[in-house]
Every structure is written in C-alpha cells, then in structure tokens.
C-alpha cells in the first residue's frame, strides 16, 4: 500500500509523523483557549487536558510580556528541564503546537520539524473547515434540548 501523502493525512497522522520524525515523546495541538485539538505519541504519563489549559495560560501571559517589549507575540517558547523539555510554537493565531522531548541534543531537529509539520497542520486546519459537510453540522435546537436536560440532571443531584 502506498504511504499516505502528508497533504492527505488527518491532523492526528501529521502529528504522529512529527513525533516519530523529530524523535520526541509526544505532541499536542491545542487552541489558545486551552482545548486539545489533537494529540499523538506517548501521552499516558500526563494529563493532556490540564496541560493544554496551563500552556494556553502560559502562552497568553508570555504574549503580554512580548507586548511590553514592543513585540506582537513570541512565536516560540522553550522550557528546558533536567530530563524533559517542552517546545511550544504558534501554528496559527489561535492554535499552538506543544512537543515534549527527552534528549536536549535534538532541540535543533525538534525546531525544524515543528516548523515543517506546522505548515501541514495549518493546511489541515483550513481543510477541516473547508470540508465540513452538512452531516457534521450540529443540530442546534436538538442539541440545546438534550444539553439543558443533562445540565439539570448533573447539577441538580446533591444540591444543597
């Protein structure tokens, strides 16, 4: 079977290839509000939901610092630890990529691959919007009815 071309890959596949190619442990694609869009690699050792929320907050704080020194934003953040390191980069104005890796010597490779695969992720994100078919549309009125019922069930139990 022919290998899938990068431009035909799902965002998960792109992210998985990035992890393999950069020799990182794992990668996340998150929104600037802190929601995980995709994850790949070995994420079993951490809580990706909480991590996304914290990194989004961290990135926002850094953006404010950037503004203080006359920059619109810093596009890359690097956190160096003793055994594990994190490379965070902006993919679009509203999404960022988080790569966790162990060997600091591969930092150059991580940066390069982040940039290369970042372009495919941008293409993937815009394709996702473009290819949204009617069946994907959220049935709003039905959605609201079910959601309101669920909210009653969840928040009424144990009420004081």
């Amino acid at each position: 079977m022919e290998p899938t071309a990068l431009e035909d890959m799902t965002m998960h596949q792109v992210l998985a290839n990035l992890v393999e190619d950069s020799r990182a442990m794992m990668a996340l694609l998150i929104t600037k509000e802190g929601t995980v869009i995709e994850e790949a690699g070995d994420t079993s050792m951490l809580n990706t939901t909480a991590m996304a929320a914290l990194i989004a907050g961290m990135f926002s704080a850094t953006r404010e610092v950037a503004r203080m020194v006359g920059e619109k934003q810093f596009s890359i953040l690097l956190q160096q630890g003793e055994q594990r390191h994190i490379h965070i980069s902006l993919v679009t104005d509203s999404t960022m990529m988080v790569i966790v890796f162990e060997d600091y010597k591969i930092i150059g490779r991580v940066r390069l691959k982040a940039r290369q695969y970042g372009e495919h992720l941008i293409a993937g994100l815009s394709r996702q919007q473009r290819n949204r078919s009617e069946k994907d549309e959220v049935p709003v009125s039905q959605f609201k009815e079910y959601a309101l019922n669920l909210i009653d069930q969840i928040f009424t139990a144990n009420e004081k």
Partner: peptide, 9 residues
Amino acid sequence: PLDLGNIAG
C-alpha cells in the same frame, strides 16, 4: 474539565 457526555453526536 467537566464532561457532559455525548449530545447529538
């Protein structure tokens, strides 16, 4: 995070 569950798919 609070997971409300599956609603309308």
